[in-house]
């Protein structure tokens, strides 16, 4: 390392690797109850992670959650962009991952045909 600019460049590169420990950015939550896993939640999550990696998205966290009682609609995936409503997608297949990430997470365009619920943002 020779200059301060080198350090800054390195920092930016390294920051991405620690992004998972910050609490900013968009959250993508996958339902991982027994019902979800049986319906293929693991595969959906893997597809989501692949898509995020492919697009080199940094400010996106993939989290898991347990069963929320809409087992019939599994696999359920929630997308929460900062300051926006929580959108729940149902019957998500691995092949939908690219669309959810590309349209909604990146561009903020909700994938209407998959939506099963919407929870309004909590006013602080």
């Amino acid at each position: 390392m020779k200059t301060v600019a080198d350090l800054k460049a390195l920092r930016e590169k390294l920051q991405a690797e620690m992004q998972v420990r910050s609490d900013s950015g968009t959250k993508v939550v996958v339902g991982m109850g027994t019902c979800g896993i049986a319906a293929g939640a693991r595969e959906v999550m893997a597809a989501l992670l692949d898509e995020i990696a492919k697009r080199k998205l940094q400010d996106v966290h993939v989290e898991q959650t347990g069963c929320i009682g809409m087992c019939e609609k599994e696999v359920l995936v929630d997308v929460i962009r900062p300051g926006e409503d929580r959108i729940t997608y149902g019957k998500v297949k691995p092949s939908d991952a690219a669309k959810i990430i590309g349209d909604h997470v990146v561009n903020g365009k909700i994938v209407q045909e998959l939506v099963v619920g919407r929870i309004e943002r909590q006013k602080k």
Partner: peptide, 11 residues
């Protein structure tokens, strides 16, 4: 780098 961004959780 691909590998790294695929990480979804740090323990």
């Amino acid at each position: 780098m691909m590998q790294d961004t695929r990480i979804r959780a740090d323990v």
